[in-house]
Design a protein around this nucleic acid. Structure first.
Lengths: 194, 194
DNA sequence: GTCTATACGGCGATAGAC
DNA sequence: GTCTATCGCCGTATAGAC
């Protein structure tokens, strides 16, 4: 029966992707080696090449996993009834992650930027998590009120969240994320139909 | 007379820093090698070590040069009479750089983030350009009106500018910076005392 | 000060036994 | 599928002639 063998393979592949995602977040893609990933995932170096033919394949897999993480978060937020609650939930998610993000930056933003920089071969893949996030936000803003500004509002929110993660990491101050979260929520309320 | 020799040394050192700054922006710090920098600056590989004992020294020099660039920009903006004009000038500066930034990100943000990530030994150095920019913005907002929100406003502006550079690079769309610039200017006007 | 040449280590990738 | 061993390249850093 191949089923168990296949399942074990899939589990190990996932373990490699998870280990790589963690290391890419903490150190960046460039300084992370296959040996790092292998040892973190407790798999022999040579075996990594059974799952990923080259580093780019691993990077693409991690980026897609990050996209999946974003989609899972947004699906959770879709449980909230009102668009404003959903958008506030997104801000809250950023604030909850403030301690890690102030150390290593946003795991999605830092990865996608490093991968997309200078239009590398993986530029399209790296854009996807941002497209998912941006269009979800745009949809929420469209439901928030009859303004024609949904697209700029979505861009403003995503930019602010990404920017504050970067700023907090550079300045080593997690509470900047809390503070910016409050500013963004006040802004959201100011957009509500009175 | 050592004067000319010294001057030539200083010039070559500057050529190395400029070359490194350019390469750090286009490729990031990690993938940039001394050989890259040497060839871009048209200086032999071995000579680079006369000016910089290790890569970290070069990275620190480039980061300080970026801080100098920020200070020069802010000094130019200080020529404007009104605080709102000065803040709008900052936004305009970002918009002017949109084509390069949408390819490689903000040269200051991407560098400082990569250097500060995970609290490396250069974390303090990398924070300085951001501190300069942030406190300048805070001063402008304080002059803009008697609001007690100067610090959060400065954080919001810097975050938005950094975030939109990153987003534009990931999504390969320079016009996002133009659009966010308009949103930010509208926001500035809304803060004015009526 | 500036160069060429090179030592040394590490990383991506492969070979091949089990 | 998983491992160990290893090749070849490239990057940091140094040595030493000029």
């Amino acid at each position: 029966m191949t089923t168990t063998a296949e399942a074990s393979s899939i589990i190990k592949r996932r373990r490699l992707v998870d280990a790589a995602a963690e290391l890419f977040h903490r150190q960046g893609v460039a300084p992370t080696t296959f040996a790092n990933v292998a040892s973190e995932a407790k798999i022999a170096l040579g075996s990594v090449y059974y799952y990923f033919n080259a580093k780019d394949d691993l990077v693409a897999a991690v980026t897609e996993a990050r996209k999946g993480g974003i989609e899972a978060l947004l699906a959770r937020l879709d449980g909230s009834k009102q668009p404003r609650q959903r958008l506030e939930g997104l801000i809250d998610a950023w604030v909850s992650d403030r301690l890690v993000d102030a150390l290593y930056g946003c795991p999605v933003g830092s990865l996608c930027f490093e991968v997309a920089r200078g239009r590398g071969p993986l530029g399209e893949v790296a854009a996807q998590p941002f497209q998912v996030l941006m269009s979800w936000c745009e949809r929420q803003f469209r439901q928030l009120g009859p303004s024609r500004d949904a697209a700029p509002h979505a861009l403003h929110l995503v930019s602010a969240l990404q920017g504050v993660s970067l700023t907090a990491a550079v300045l080593a101050d997690a509470e900047l994320i809390t503070k910016e979260g409050k500013v963004l929520k006040r802004w959201l309320r100011s957009l509500e139909p009175k």
